[in-house]
Amino acid sequence: MRNLIPSYIRVPIVFFIIVGLVEYFVESGDQPAFMEQPVIMLFLLLVLLVLLAIEGIVGSMDNILYQSLDEEAKARYDAKRAAPSKLVVWVKDTYQKLLGSKPIEQEGEIILDHNYDGIKELDNSLPPWWLYGFYATIIFGVVYMVRYHVFNADDQFAEYEIEYAEAQRAIEEYKKTAKNLVDINTVEVLTEAADLNAGQKIFETNCVVCHMADGGGGIGPNLTDNYWILGGGIKNVFKTVSEGGRDGKGMVAWKASLKPLEIAQVSSYLLQFQGTTPANPKDPEGEIWVDESAGETGNETEEGNEEESTTEDAVETMETTTVASNN
């Protein structure tokens, strides 16, 4: 191996393999790890010095062993080193086959009659690598034409749209499990006990001083009634906690000190005060807030019930008329 690859090639290869492994296993930002962390740069410099030292030591040992040989052994060793290795011979043979040209000694067989000012032309065949590459492009062109222009396979624009849609679905699925990515558009009421307990701790730590432990209100508004200053429901409450209340006299914004998940937890917890009876409730502030989505659902249900009642009344009327006519 040492005779096959010179040290000036072997050392850089080993060094860059080690650099690649360091980059793979060490987390870094936009810059390489050795540029962000000076310790890693010192480590790589030490590795390079060790590799150079090993090459020097091994080279010295080879020289000592060579000097200890007799003349006949030195001659055999020199002849073996001078002879090309099997890899070099294989590479040269492969190159000649791909090139497809005749050796200089045999060029006389393919010289053409053209002669211009002593310059003669050789009748060399096309190199096999070029010829096979040309055939490959023809095959590729035929396959491409049949696939995309005959069978109308998805082109690059359709593939982009498909991959984009798949990526969007993957992002939405990831957001369902990554609660810290929640925002005002994706927040939902959390019902798990762990989330509500976490919300209770946040509320008792940060909110009790203004809203009281039972949500009855003090400096802050009452959380148990249906009156809201900036709107009720999980989305409005999440926004209020995150961005703060009214300018100059409302609650401070908590987005700087609470994570999105924590804001969703405390918002879900304080919504549980709705409909409860606090010890000293504060007078209502703001306006009555009605969940429009729930109202629409309720209206649809009422309309359905009215239609059903109308239908039943019509059936009963028809039955009464039929009985009367029979009588």
Rank of each mutant, 00 (worst) to 15 (best):
residue 4 L to D: 14
residue 8 Y to L: 07
residue 8 Y to D: 05
residue 14 V to G: 02
residue 16 F to M: 03
residue 18 I to G: 01
residue 19 V to A: 08
residue 19 V to S: 14
residue 27 E to D: 09
residue 31 Q to A: 12
residue 39 V to K: 09
residue 46 L to E: 05
residue 48 L to N: 01
residue 54 I to N: 03
residue 54 I to V: 13
residue 55 E to Q: 12
residue 58 V to G: 01
residue 70 D to C: 04
residue 80 K to L: 05
residue 80 K to N: 10
residue 84 P to Y: 00
residue 88 V to Q: 15
residue 91 V to C: 13
residue 95 Y to Q: 02
residue 99 L to R: 14
residue 106 Q to F: 01
residue 109 E to M: 12
residue 111 I to Y: 12
residue 114 H to Y: 11
residue 117 D to G: 13
residue 118 G to P: 10
residue 132 Y to G: 03
residue 134 F to Y: 06
residue 140 F to T: 07
residue 146 V to W: 09
residue 150 V to S: 11
residue 151 F to Q: 04
residue 156 Q to P: 00
residue 160 Y to H: 10
residue 161 E to I: 10
residue 162 I to C: 01
residue 166 E to W: 05
residue 167 A to F: 08
residue 169 R to N: 11
residue 172 E to Q: 08
residue 180 N to V: 12
residue 184 I to V: 13
residue 187 V to C: 10
residue 190 L to Y: 08
residue 195 D to C: 03
residue 204 E to V: 04
residue 208 V to T: 15
residue 210 C to S: 03
residue 215 G to R: 03
residue 222 N to Y: 00
residue 223 L to E: 06
residue 231 G to M: 11
residue 231 G to H: 10
residue 236 N to M: 05
residue 237 V to P: 01
residue 240 T to H: 15
residue 242 S to W: 08
residue 243 E to D: 15
residue 251 M to V: 04
residue 258 L to I: 00
residue 259 K to Q: 05
residue 264 A to G: 14
residue 264 A to Y: 01
residue 269 Y to I: 02
residue 271 L to Y: 06
residue 273 F to I: 02
residue 277 T to A: 14
residue 281 P to N: 03
residue 285 E to C: 03
residue 286 G to F: 14
residue 287 E to F: 05
residue 289 W to G: 07
residue 291 D to P: 02
residue 297 T to S: 08
residue 298 G to A: 07
residue 302 E to C: 06
residue 313 D to N: 05
residue 314 A to E: 11
residue 315 V to H: 05
residue 323 V to H: 04
residue 326 N to D: 13
